[in-house]
Design a protein around this nucleic acid. Structure first.
Lengths: 151, 151
DNA sequence: ACAAATAGTTGCGTTTTACAAATAAATGAA
DNA sequence: TTCATTTATTTGTAAAACGCAACTATTTGT
């Protein structure tokens, strides 16, 4: 059988390029990491800086500065948490939300196009497979988490 | 049904972190992009600079400098092509090959671990799904290729 | 009340990035 | 052949991203 990593590498590379391309559409023009940040903030319930930096596997100091940029661009709002004033809660502004939604729509549109080359059954199978894969990756504590992050 | 992009995002993020982590193991200590470069050179038959830069969606000038670094580190060899002296052919040195192999083994080891949480049937299904996905992504010319690369 | 832990920021030097322009070699047309 | 054009790669340069160390501010535990 062929190299499994190869399959993953090709798939994630393509999806990565898609993500990248979708950062510069029409009104939208942000960097790839910024797109990821918007995505994660949008997905979660007013997360803290640490939380988002963590899932993205980013150094907190780099993340801090990226947030500063996004705040300057008017895409993200930083709200101090009343019960713990060390913590800042992140949320998207209306424009940030708009951009995140635009990117999301664009990516889903592309994915639909890809799935259009399959039968409905194949599509279901593929989606179930990825879901299963994600569950198994979550189980496996070996790696994949930003453990040894800093060199 | 849930957002399809979400599934992809989670999967590729995990795999991305895995890739990142596997860059700094033991003797190996290179950046993520450098790891990708080594991987692609290893995979192909003495490719040119353009070719590798292209599949990685990298700007050729950035790529050029990364190659210079890898050559300095003694991991990559740049050989001028006799029949067209403008192009350079890329290949891995013994040490570059060793590092690429080490990373590859490590990643595959992790993937095996992930698959160990599935039945043999599920594993087969997942692998076939990813393969199918890759084929369909290749068909779709909408995006995913480094078309609009530069902003 | 105070040491220790936690969340986030800033200083600073290194690396990465990409546009513009340069070099060098091949190709095509006159 | 010669010269303009195209192609592959490199270099100049400046901006952006990165991450360690050190700092501030706040909370927690004793």
């Amino acid at each position: 059988m062929e190299n499994i990593r190869e399959l993953f590498q090709v798939m994630t590379r393509r999806f990565g390029l898609l993500n990248k391309n979708c950062c510069s559409i029409d009104a939208v023009d942000i960097s790839l990491v910024q797109s990821h940040i918007l995505y994660e903030i949008d997905k979660r319930e007013s997360p803290s800086m640490q939380q988002v930096a963590e899932v993205l596997g980013m150094d907190i100091t780099t993340f801090s500065r990226q947030i500063q940029n996004l705040v300057k661009k008017g895409l993200v709002k930083k709200t101090p948490l009343p019960e713990d004033r060390r913590v800042y809660t992140l949320s998207l502004t209306t424009e940030g939300k708009f951009i995140a939604t635009t990117i999301d729509r664009e990516i889903n549109r592309y994915l639909e196009e890809v799935f259009s080359h399959m039968t409905e059954f194949e599509k279901e199978t593929v989606i179930r497979s990825i879901k299963l894969l994600n569950e198994c990756m979550a189980k496996s504590s070996v790696c994949c988490k930003p453990i040894g992050m800093g060199k």
